[in-house]
């Protein structure tokens, strides 16, 4: 796996190949897999993403009762034409909630990069496909772009909330989606990496503070900010805006920020929102229920 975004970008220039192809070739080489098999496997991942959105059940509530039914509220307001967001971003918001709520309700999703952040990529990618009618192959290529970015983050920093806080999950998903979105719009390798850098830099330091230790509050709603952040980061990069700090250094900053986060704010369910009086009360109630069941 590539260890720097800079290397991918340089190889794109040297070999005159697209970003996704270099990521795919590198992975196939390491895994001893043919490029055709890899592509079809990735196609299956994209279809599973589409399905995770389509199978949303608007009546479903999670086991704890903390989340569910919110995406439907956004849909009703969007269809009434009352959202501040335009139709595209309204759909992005709704989809992020749909997939993240589905995850909390034990439905099938694609962990990309994690289950807790599973709403971000489909929210951005499916909505872009619906708007621009990209063919499926192109969407699969975009997943390689996202995977290449995620692979670099995994190696230089982390994709786990327990290690790096929420910035490692929602932040990484956002950076991956931003890069994939730039690819879909025909942006350069340089724009791809800078969209990722802008996205990561914008939510650097986000803490992981799940109430009662569950992937529900605030995880579900944070998928929305991750997706919206990817959209604006893509637009900025496509406008020619660049991160003042090189993308690989932004990822390194994410690692050092993650290390500096106290344990209470790294998925332990103790600090932040989990540590509020209401958060603590919910946790006590859940624990009581567990002992009875």
């Amino acid at each position: 796996m590539y260890k720097t975004l800079r290397e991918i970008e340089e190889d794109c220039r040297k070999e005159n190949l697209p970003f996704w192809k270099l990521v795919q070739r590198d992975d196939c080489h390491e895994e001893a897999m043919s490029e055709e098999d890899s592509f079809e496997k990735m196609r299956g991942i994209y279809r599973a993403m589409r399905e995770s959105d389509e199978r949303y059940d608007k009546n479903l509530v999670s086991h704890s009762g903390l989340v569910g039914t919110d995406a439907e509220k956004v849909r009703l307001r969007r269809e009434a034409g009352k959202l501040l967001c335009d139709d595209f971003t309204g759909h992005v918001m709704e989809r992020a909630l749909r997939v993240a709520e589905s995850n909390a309700c034990m439905k099938r999703i694609v962990a990309a990069p994690t289950a807790g952040s599973c709403g971000v990529m489909p929210a951005v990618l499916l909505t872009m496909q619906d708007r621009f009618q990209f063919d499926e192959d192109r969407m699969v290529e975009a997943l390689y772009v996202a995977g290449g970015i995620g692979g670099v983050i995994a190696q230089r920093a982390s994709l786990a909330g327990a290690e790096g806080g929420c910035q490692a999950e929602i932040g990484s998903a956002s950076g991956m989606a931003a890069g994939a979105a730039v690819y879909l719009l025909g942006g350069s390798a340089d724009a791809i990496t800078h969209a990722c850098a802008i996205a990561l830099a914008s939510i650097l330091g986000l803490v992981c503070d799940p109430v009662a230790g569950l992937v529900e509050v605030p995880c579900v709603k944070r998928n929305v900010i991750g997706a919206m952040n990817a959209v604006t980061s893509c637009d900025m990069a496509m406008s020619g805006i660049r991160s003042r700090i090189p993308p690989d250094e932004v990822i390194d900053a994410m690692k050092s920020v993650g290390r500096a986060l106290p344990e209470e704010l790294r998925e332990t369910g103790r600090g932040g929102l989990a540590g509020t009086p209401t958060g603590v009360e919910i946790q006590k109630k859940m624990h009581g229920r567990q002992e009875k069941s």
Binding site: M42, R108, G148
Partner: peptide, 21 residues
């Protein structure tokens, strides 16, 4: 780790460690 660990796996939620694991 390979690319399908980053974009994937396809799994039933809500948690890779508490559910898929």
């Amino acid at each position: 780790m390979n690319i399908f660990d980053v974009v994937g796996p396809v799994m039933v939620g809500p948690s890779s460690s508490h559910t898929a694991g």
